[in-house]
Design a binder for these strands. Structure first.
Ligand code: ZN
Length: 537
DNA sequence: CGGTTTTGACCAGCGC
DNA sequence: GCGCTGGTCAAAACCG
């Protein structure tokens, strides 16, 4: 519980954040499983009706869907994870039938009552008139019923349409990703998910720890774990890291030399050393120097420690680790605030997230809208308690951003730590249900400073491209990058510290991802998910 | 030569 | 007090 961020998200089939039972630090973060099914994204819709879907794939662990669905007035359950049609049918049946029955039943009862009192002519007349009235009423009811049906059908149609849309988008993205992966394959691709968390600093001084989870290219953590330390020196577990580490590893291995039984020199660090600034530099837009690596207890993957080298005295540090469960996920934790201006890339990230957050906060968009929106392929707002999660997937870089920093509730910006006004206030709120109807959210990246910020990013990194996601904990500068928004899709869910938050994140991410990326499922998703959870401050 | 990575060692905090 | 774990330090080596 070092960090106390442990989140368990069951709700989404797609994304399950599990804490590896005893997972060390990273536990706190969530894991995002790639198995995201596209369709699920639907869940996120803010519609009054909650649709809970169960995926078979989904974590068998828990299915709380029911619970969630119960809350809302109308619950639509999809029981077929895959089938599109199936879910619909179920919806129609449940809703309509019930409504109709009720109406009919009522009418019937009415009639019966009328009949009772008939004995005299007067009574007959009266009864007739009543009967007529009843009939009229019945007709009216029927009409109304019809109308309801129509509405229902419309809703279902919309739902289906959205679903289809999502599926299509996801497929496209997947295809693209796959292509990219194939192309990049050797290059360790950057296509991983990143989860970024900013912690509210509890631990230490002033610095605010931020955590990021990266699911990505096996970049940092994976690589780290596998290539350098694990394979060679530590001989830890050979993990499957092969995936990511591939390129560098091979090179590094050759290059690396053993000294005293240790390997020295540059091997491939997860980040990929010099050349491979994949994450560290590029991702964040900042320059980082690795000052340590350690094996985490519950995680076969080592954790890497980085220090910001952008400025001499910059206190910002970050930890990068891969999820034990899903190595594609990188968890990055940022701590502290930069004492220098951030690079454009970082700024861009921040700005994008900020913008997204603001939009979310405004609350204008509906999930559906978001999905439809060209810029945002998918947007989901998680209504978890107070926190919000927004997901935006744009073709190139779908990103999901969770802001914990912001409290939807308290719209006020939490205190800007030092420099920026990052709304971190996020106090831990619970995301009890992923599906919660409306949470305002802010994109976390803006978060910047002191508070911790935790985010989940699922991103594919495009190598050097800067855009990705970065949730950097840094200052937001005036931004520069309008286009970034397009390029970078940021969805942020604000998650407060609560475990529930994770669930919310997971849900949001899953939904978004599914929508945006297409099948985030296994292989590679290009989507980025960033969560910022800044609580403190 | 400067900057960075690697990695064992060291230190601090926490629980028992 | 001991052991465990996490975080940091610093020497050695590498790369451009
Ligand atoms: Zn810095």
């Amino acid at each position: 519980m070092d960090k106390g961020w442990g989140l368990a998200l069951d709700s989404d089939p797609h994304i399950s954040f599990n804490k590896p039972s005893s997972a060390p630090v990273l536990d706190s973060f969530f894991k995002i499983k790639k198995n995201l099914d596209v369709p699920d994204s639907v869940k996120m819709f803010p519609f009054p009706v909650t649709v809970s879907r169960r995926d078979d794939h989904a974590s068998p662990d828990k299915r709380n869907d029911d619970d969630e669905s119960k809350a809302t007035c109308v619950t639509v359950k999809k029981e077929n994870s895959y089938g599109e049609a199936a879910p619909r049918s179920s919806l129609h049946v449940n809703v309509r039938t019930t409504g109709l029955h009720l109406l009919t039943a009522n009418t019937g009862s009415d009639q019966s009552t009328v009949d009772d009192g008939v004995s005299s002519d007067v009574d007959d007349k009266r009864s007739k008139s009543e009967l007529a009235q009843l009939q009229v009423e019945l007709q009216r009811m029927n009409v109304e019923n019809q109308r309801l049906r129509d509405m229902l059908s419309q809703v279902t149609n919309n739902y289906n349409a959205l679903q289809m849309h999502l599926v299509a988008l996801m497929q496209q993205q997947q295809q693209q990703q796959q292509q990219q992966q194939q192309q990049n394959h050797g290059t360790e691709a950057n296509q991983e998910h990143e989860v970024v968390q900013v912690k509210p600093e509890e631990k230490k001084h002033e610095v605010v720890p931020r955590q990021f989870l990266d699911l990505g290219p096996s970049a940092e953590t994976d690589e780290m774990s596998h290539s350098s330390s694990d394979e060679r020196t530590r001989s830890a577990t050979p993990l499957a890291n092969m995936e990511t580490a591939s390129v560098k590893n091979s090179a590094n291995q050759e290059n690396s030399s053993f000294r005293d039984g240790k390997r020295i020199g540059r091997e491939e660090s997860p980040d990929s050393g010099s050349q491979g600034w994949n994450h560290s530099k590029i991702t964040d837009g900042c320059q980082w120097r690795k000052y340590g690596q350690k094996m985490a207890k519950g995680n076969p993957c080592p954790r890497a420690y980085y220090r910001c080298t952008m400025a001499v005295g910059c206190p910002v540090r970050k930890q990068v680790q891969r999820c034990a469960d899903d190595r594609t996920i990188l968890i990055t934790t940022y701590e502290g605030s930069h004492n220098h201006p951030l690079p454009p890339a970082a700024v861009a990230m921040a700005s994008t997230t900020t913008a997204a957050a603001s939009m979310l906060l405004s609350g204008s968009m509906s999930s559906a809208d978001g999905l439809m929106n060209p810029n945002l392929l998918a947007r989901a707002i998680l209504p978890c308690s107070s926190s919000m999660a927004t997901i935006s997937a744009s073709a190139p870089f779908p990103t999901v951003t969770l802001d914990l920093t912001h409290n939807p509730n308290s719209q006020q910006v939490l205190r800007p730590p030092t420099h920026l006004q990052v709304p971190f206030a996020g106090q831990p709120q619970n995301f009890a249900s992923v599906i919660a109807p409306q949470l305002p959210q802010v994109f976390g990246q803006a978060l910047y400073n002191q508070s911790k910020f935790s985010g989940l990013q699922l991103s594919q990194e495009m190598g050097s491209s800067q855009l990705h996601h970065q949730s950097q904990p840094q200052q937001l500068q005036p931004a520069q990058q309008p286009s970034l928004v397009d390029t970078v899709n940021a969805a942020t869910a604000a998650i407060t510290a609560d475990p529930n938050f994770t669930a919310a994140l997971a849900a949001a991410i899953s939904s978004i991802i599914s929508g945006a990326n297409g099948n985030a499922t296994t292989s590679n998703n290009n989507g980025n998910i960033t969560n910022n959870t800044s609580n403190r401050n």
